[in-house]
Write a protein that binds this DNA or RNA. Sequence first.
DNA 1: GCGAATGGCGAGACCGGGCTCTCGAGCCCG
DNA 2: CGGGCTCGAGAGCCCGGTCTCGCCATTCGC
Lengths: 365, 365
Amino acid sequence: MTVERSAPPTISEVAAEAGVGRATAARTLGGYGYVSPELRSRVLAAAERLGYRANALARSMSTGVSHTLGVIVADIGNPFFAGVVRGISDASRARGFDTIVLSTHESLDEEIAAMHVLIDKQVDGIVVASAALGPKTSAHIAEAWSRGIPVVLVDRAVPGLELDAVVIDNREAAREAVTALIAAGHRRVGFVWGPPIAGRPDRRRDLVDAAARNLWTDGERLRGYLDALDDAGLPFDADLVMVGEKTEERAIAEVERMLGLDDRVTALFCTETDAVTGALRAIRATGFRVPADVSLIGFDDSSWAAVMEPPLTMIEQPMLALGTRAAEVLLALIDGAPRSQPDGAFRHTLDTRLVERSSVAPPSA
Amino acid sequence: MTVERSAPPTISEVAAEAGVGRATAARTLGGYGYVSPELRSRVLAAAERLGYRANALARSMSTGVSHTLGVIVADIGNPFFAGVVRGISDASRARGFDTIVLSTHESLDEEIAAMHVLIDKQVDGIVVASAALGPKTSAHIAEAWSRGIPVVLVDRAVPGLELDAVVIDNREAAREAVTALIAAGHRRVGFVWGPPIAGRPDRRRDLVDAAARNLWTDGERLRGYLDALDDAGLPFDADLVMVGEKTEERAIAEVERMLGLDDRVTALFCTETDAVTGALRAIRATGFRVPADVSLIGFDDSSWAAVMEPPLTMIEQPMLALGTRAAEVLLALIDGAPRSQPDGAFRHTLDTRLVERSSVAPPSA
DNA sequence: GCGAATGGCGAGACCGGGCTCTCGAGCCCG
DNA sequence: CGGGCTCGAGAGCCCGGTCTCGCCATTCGC
């Protein structure tokens, strides 16, 4: 295939071709101002002949609007974030906005760099699932705002940052799941996995403090777990929670440990997909069975969970809706909508659903 | 939070603040040309004070380079494409390029529109997993090329379009999987699922022809299935292949049908994740068991497949590598590398791996 | 000691559009 | 028949950078 590359035609060339002034061609092609039917059709014909396409960059330069949204997530390869991005993408595309997606690999430095890339590229708004932990680590988000770029948080709120945040109630979802486990009769419920903090605090208070200084979702899910324990009057046992680096390997080791305890765990609450698969491997390796020997509930439902043996009871997150809602809120902000009222109204909380299948049963004895 | 929004400072303002000419400030901030240490530090200080950030759009305007890559896939929410995009994103980010991702929902019209968006936004290159079926339906791809924008295909090649394509050998991977099933003793192997063509051709030749006029990956996988049958001297039976709309619901119905045949299917080859879960549901619904009653091999390995009961034998695709490689090839093209030689060298074929686990066993009797 | 080479800096053109403003032509009306 | 309007179209500035070119000052060479 021999392709001929010629410099793309500009509006001046179209004007020359049509024998009209540049402004007239611009008005016709830009769809603004008045142009007589006669000249309009001549311009259109010339543009067609030349294969003219407007340079969106040049247009953005003079209008100051790029019709582009920036999206920052930890990992676009993660099915959860991919779903959220899909939601954002579909909703914004429907409104004529395109999206630039940046992955931060869960690093705050990369997130800051990503924010700068988006600011420099003059995006009209930003949706971010931030790894920021509080006001002190979220200066980059405030910076975007101060430059006039609306920002909406998705999936992860940032405590102390009064920005619109589209999230689920992680704490409540976790509490509901753990409560279901307790309701089935379990008193030794393991938590897999928590915030990536170093060491494992023995005291509950230390744990909560450490969690508060960590990823928002992790902390919330841990608190939901604790809430359920409190509701049922069950004691907190540091041996039943896994914190630290979140890898499937560690999950396997930790769950095997919990399963090997004298007063072993009889139910597991897993906060992420990989925590679920890790737990499953550990359960299998130790010869136990779900749900006869150990019950399990995990976060992030997927079509796989339904075909497992047994089908897994999971917490379903509205991934797409999280994205579309975030995009809608952001687009409204771009349109100049006043920001949500203070006092917690910044939170747009979407419902989760506990999809009950067959991985929960009463403890064996 | 009361944010003060002020117009972002421009290079002229920085120059004024520093008391130097605009060009000097531009040279300093743009990192080109010579500036004396004295003035340089004054400019830097002024920029710092004003919080200056270069407008990437304006820069792209004059340089003609946007440092942005466009990516077009069917569905960014699909874990497979999400993985590919992650690969592209990481590889290009490392080279200073950002990515704009567009989902086409498997529609050629949306793909064409997406291509135009990217052309208009002046991206430096495009990676596309195209739904185009041949030269006639890929004019939009040729158009991008003719405008000087390099395009690299990923995952899906387009027959007759001599562009660099980073793919896996779908036909060979399918042949290998089906051959493994046949080697285990199966003679009635079902194919789930094929190209979304209407009706089910009874004659093998018609099927192949229809497939050739359809999605490249689907056709290749179907041919690999047929190859394996031929290799083993097994007859083709239209009753054992599922074509048409690819939904999990239909897969369930079709597999139940294949399982209900007098001479029923004893092994299943599934070409996608949802085809696997659909097949599994059908198998379970009919009371059969894997692998005792029916063996199964599917495409797209995931961490779930390994924790299934039994663990599933799957074909692993190098999602990330597909993406990184595509980005590398594209970036090389952007750097002005000559295009690959004709005669098939346009194909960059990455290896797949048949991950053998426990879902394949000899037929029951 | 004076012309020339060199070095440092800034004026201004340019990228490709948006948009304002002015100017000219045509029309209506008194 | 001329004044006032309206309507249509094009000249020209702007967006915020890049980059060429030329000016001025210093220094070098003979």
